[in-house]
Write a protein that binds this DNA or RNA. Structure first.
Lengths: 250, 250
DNA sequence: CGATAACTGTATCCGGCGGACACTTGGTGT
DNA sequence: ACACCAAGTGTCCGCCGGATACAGTTATCG
């Protein structure tokens, strides 16, 4: 167990995480009834992560919140890695139901739902990097987006690439805008405007080295209160996709 | 120090990290000469992170690689947080020099350079999430991209949004494709094709629940060896931007 | 009814971050 | 020239989190 820690998965971990996520574990009938469940534990952990940040999620803390000792949890998850994988899929939840409409409306709705999830569970951003076990809900979200693009005439690879493109935009924007947690546990959300003012503060002291950035930030700060970088990006992406779709169906 | 750990910054941390990053520390003249330097330490830490993953970067390990004890490092960095901030800016390095050409060529080149950096330092993806102290090199990269967009007639906010859009795509794609580290320390890179086959493997067992995804993946797998999701996304984004630029200059 | 499987708790190891404090080094003031 | 003292370094230690071993407890099956 040399190089395993924190966010990294070895092959064995992925295997057991997969079993848990996809429900390949038949709970046996012998012995005392479990006082806990993977769901309850995951919920407790998610509550902590939502309220106080991922760093506060320790086996001890989760167990304490459930009035158990930390070792009980190891009967439900082989290790913290698997708990986190389960937290991810639980926090994602059921994929959204997209209303009727064209692919553009559907995919826009989908992106906005992603955004909401990231707002509610900011720690997802820290934890969904790199290779990991993919759960049913995560796959369901992908299905949902691909489904919106299926009737467009794009081929399979293009559909997948398009979905990756949209998720990338949403994720990155969420990362810019979110929110570490204050020691008190309250979330100090930062709007786009605040970010720009932080940048502006830096540029006051070192502006001469970054002329283009300085003028851009100045114009953005003056330009006022349109903080819709999410929509901006989505519109560009959708415009670009539309061109491709038009070319394909021509 | 209740809720501080790992990747999170308190206000004080940001302050000291800022001083380090922007070189506001005048080394005094009294006492023995420092045997180390922030740069050397950061380089050593980066080497470890590159070769064996971020998880293996501990103060002990970094110090050991430099033949010092861990406490020496605390004369250079108040804590691990600041070391990591310094690692980020060092690993990013000088912003690239973009050749001549239109904004599209320049921004494409810029994105590709980003991609290369993420390939070389995969841990950057894990560590550049959430609020953090921004160093001069990181700002330099932004400057570089904004500069490419300055002559397009987009306003400041649009330029910034466009840059965020591109970085989001590159980052997310890098996250999909990268690479945890095996215990042996070798990097097991995963190509796009491998990712698709992992997906395909899952869908074999649970495909009925994800029909659209199944057909998309099947078509992508059959479709063959065009693994250029990076270019796909960039082209869509640039097409979308081009429409906006055309509309602005009309 | 007892054997057995399964859940929970206690004690313990390991490793990482960071602090306390003593020791060493080498400019600076007198 | 010498003492002083700031600054760098090393040793020991406390704390905490993940993970294991093992004993104690509970409920089902033979």
């Amino acid at each position: 167990m040399a190089a395993k820690k924190d966010g990294e998965f070895g092959p064995k971990d992925q295997a057991s995480a997969m079993e848990l996520l996809w429900g390949a574990v038949g709970r046996p009938t012998r012995g005392p009834k479990p006082a806990l469940s993977t769901e309850r534990i995951a919920r407790a952990a998610i509550d902590i992560a939502d309220a106080e940040g991922l760093a506060m999620v320790s086996m001890q803390r989760v167990a304490a919140d459930l009035d158990f000792t930390k070792m009980s949890l190891y009967r439900y998850f082989p290790g913290k890695t698997e708990l986190i994988a389960f937290m991810i899929d639980t926090a994602l939840g059921e994929p959204p139901a997209l209303g009727e409409g064209g692919w553009r409306a559907k995919l826009g709705e989908w992106a906005r739902q992603c955004w909401v999830v990231y707002q509610r569970h900011p720690w997802l951003l820290q934890v969904t990097v790199g290779q990991r076990a993919v759960g049913p809900n995560e796959l369901g979200w992908m299905e949902c987006a691909v489904e919106a693009l299926a009737p467009t005439g794009l081929d399979g690879a293009e559909q997948l690439d398009a979905v990756v493109l949209v998720t990338g935009h949403v994720r990155n924007l969420a990362q810019q805008v979110l929110t570490t947690v204050t020691p008190a546990g309250v979330r100090a959300g930062s709007t786009e405007g605040e970010l720009i003012s932080v940048l502006a503060g830096l540029l006051v002291r070192h502006g001469e080295r970054f002329p283009a950035l300085t003028t851009a930030v100045a114009s953005a700060a003056a330009g006022s209160a349109q903080d819709d970088a999410l929509d901006f990006g989505l519109n560009r992406i959708f415009d670009g996709l539309e061109l491709l779709i038009a070319a394909r169906s021509k």
